[in-house]
Simulated assay, not measured.
Amino acid sequence: MTSDVDLCVSIVSLWSREVLDGRGYGDYRSMGLSGGQYDILREVVDAARTARRQGKGTQYVGTLTERQAREGCVSPVPLRRARRGAVVMSGVGPVEPDGDTRPLDPPSVAPHVRSGPPARRSRRHRRTTAATLLAVAVLAGGALLYLTRPRPEPAPEPRFPSQTTSFRYLYMQVRDAGTTSAEFEFTMQAFTESDAPVTVLGISQPYAGLSLTSRPATPLRVNGGGSRKIAVTVQVTECGKVPRNAGLPFLDVTLRNTRAKEAHSYILGARYARDLSTALEVACSNGFR
């Protein structure tokens, strides 16, 4: 059988989590709490909020909440002092705070008022008391059912952007050998598998003699479950610092989604490596060094 202290700890802990998550409602009567339990709840929530502001984790806050609730439910030490000097005690007993949260006593019958035979008054009093106790029991049961209702599973945390994003090389446009331009352009397509969008923050490559610009310019957004073409213009700034025969060239791409920001290297395949080598050969044979 659950003791009064365990029941007090259970109800105060559950309502503490509700209030901290922003789902608390009503006054202490609608929450199924006594005045003393309501004071314990306020002390526990204040301590938990202080721990959150100090950067404590969820597990620490949960442990602190349950420990504070148990200390408040079993300790006879006064929690705080009311406005007119009345001491509010913790625990599960009927001690109530001084103020507007004290339940009102039923109005007493003036001695000089005759309201019927004593037996009739006694039966009416018993019916009133039974109805009040039934209402309190229903209210407490409803609050307990609400607090112990099944909770939906939290949504899974999204994957890292590099795990859901891929790039496919499409084609390259190389200038004619007779031109003096030292740049060329290739097109690739970005794909994302997740429902969440991914932002491409930057595109670069490891060779010191090349610089890249993209169209559309970064940062650019790839919608969740979709794709987007990206045209990349490569400018050769110094032929002596670029490979004439690129083996497995790769692109450095910086990505961001709701989970994280990552820098990841992508290899676009053998066809891209072959086309890149041809483009570099043409660019550096146009009289540019």
Rank of each mutant, 00 (worst) to 15 (best):
S194A: 15
A140M: 10
A283R: 05
S10R: 13
A208R: 13
A273S: 09
T180G: 14
A110H: 11
A246P: 11
S10A: 14
V198P: 00
G93V: 02
G85C: 07
A273F: 07
V77K: 11
P150E: 13
A190K: 04
G225T: 05
S10H: 09
L14W: 05
G91H: 10
R67D: 09
I11K: 12
G36S: 15
L210M: 14
R81M: 11
G178E: 14
L170V: 09
V74C: 01
G32R: 06
I11G: 01
S277L: 05
L280E: 07
P103M: 09
T132S: 11
P243I: 09
Y171T: 09
I11F: 00
P152K: 03
I40M: 05
A135G: 11
G99P: 00
S115N: 09
R67Q: 12
V138R: 07
Y169H: 08
A131T: 10
I11H: 12
A270G: 03
E153C: 00
R23D: 08
E262G: 02
F191W: 10
L14H: 07
R102C: 04
R149T: 06
G57D: 15
T63E: 14
R126W: 05
R256C: 01
F288V: 11
L14K: 11
R114W: 12
G287E: 06
V242E: 02
N286L: 05
L104I: 05
D275C: 04
P103H: 07
R221Y: 05
R70S: 07
V200I: 15
L170T: 08
V61Y: 03
